[in-house]
Design a protein around this nucleic acid. Structure first.
Lengths: 210, 210
DNA sequence: TGAGTGCTTGACACAGTGTCAATTGACAGC
DNA sequence: GCTGTCAATTGACACTGTGTCAAGCACTCA
């Protein structure tokens, strides 16, 4: 069994991810994490200087464990700009639930912790690159007019795909994940790929909520 | 001069609003608020049991000072459903900057403070009523099909108009307020009022950012 | 046997919220 | 003028959570 020989930093991060992945759980303190790992609170500081560093490291471990599906999906299906946008939106929307637990913990300290804010901004800047690439593909196809609006189109897509919007629709409004994906996809295709037929998808998903 | 005879609770709330309205300022502590008011920290607790109660009271005072323009604007211009949606979206979008300072302070403690979360949810539920009314007007006109999708349309509009989206576009992306309003308005009209011409507004605002 | 490493316990500093008790100052009514 | 009340003050303290520090223990490797 390899599970006995895992080094302590990794064990800490896995325990942290375990705590963060529990839906609706209260945000864990250093004591919580230590207890979940099975070591003393002070030992955490032997491996991670601050709680924020620990959360950021957890993010990186999680990305490492997940990013196989992501990153590739949107790029390889790049037949047309519209298809690329579609693939990117779908892939990202379905990636959010996986990272939400950790994202929530980082977002919660962003107002008070500059380091956490910087890490989150970097992460989101990476994601924006994906948005920019999709928009560029649309411009290439002539679907979207070339010019200064590409920055704005990128920002708009970036905003539509924000974790906060996922949170609002699925957690606050209680939407089904599939309904969320279908709606955002329709929204993106209609506004950016001028695929007016996609508007039909918006508001056309099974009513699973109250 | 009336400014000398204002009662202490109000003075506290005004000082709090003063602190919260400063853009990019760090979130004020009870000590900060006491200092700004010119009283001792402990005296705050003679008037407000907790920091959250103080913030909520500040919200209410601010609403009271502002709500003249709001609330009325969308209702009175209700010639057609589309016009009503337009008026509501524009009014709300221009209201957000006024409340953002306070909203930011409350949002920052929402994850750790159930009372703050409840207050914010109530506030946002009120706003959702406005969304629901606009959607209902669209259904009345036949612009939007009647049925179970009205709940989803309301949620979608509610999401588009979220404070987080305003924050993202204007604070993170650096968009101009007018550009923000034009874009969200176009988005709402296109997706909910099926006003496809409104799509032109989306991505057609002056590029003020870098 | 001894050094080094990883972790332990226990104590402590610091910021921030919230509580409590004793005191002061002003102002009203008798 | 004396007294009671109310608002505010000072100072101390409890609690939570983060982060630091020192001393000690146990295991492994040489």
């Amino acid at each position: 069994m390899s599970s006995d020989t895992i080094d302590t930093p990794t064990r800490i991060l896995q325990a942290t991810l375990g705590l963060l992945e529990q839906p609706r759980a209260k945000l864990p303190t250093m004591s919580d994490i230590a207890r979940a790992t099975g070591i003393s609170r002070q030992a955490l500081y032997l491996h991670f200087p601050t709680r924020t560093d620990l959360l950021i490291a957890a993010t990186r471990l999680q990305d490492q464990q997940n990013n196989v599906d992501m990153h590739l999906a949107p790029s390889r299906t790049a037949a047309s700009g519209t298809e690329r946008l579609d693939a990117f939106v779908t892939a990202w929307c379905n990636y959010i639930p996986k990272i939400y637990g950790v994202a929530r913990a980082i977002l919660a300290v962003i107002d008070t912790d500059a380091e956490a804010a910087a890490a989150w901004n970097t992460r989101m800047a990476d994601m924006r690159e994906g948005c920019a690439a999709a928009v560029a593909a649309l411009v290439e196809d002539g679907t979207l007019p070339q010019g200064s609006e590409t920055e704005q189109a990128t920002d708009l897509l970036w905003t539509m795909l924000s974790v906060r919007n996922w949170e609002h629709l699925t957690q606050t409004c209680g939407w089904d994940q599939d309904c969320y994906v279908a709606t955002i996809r329709g929204l993106a295709l209609a506004t950016l790929a001028r695929d007016l037929g996609a508007l039909t998808d918006v508001l056309a998903c099974p009513p699973t909520q109250a």
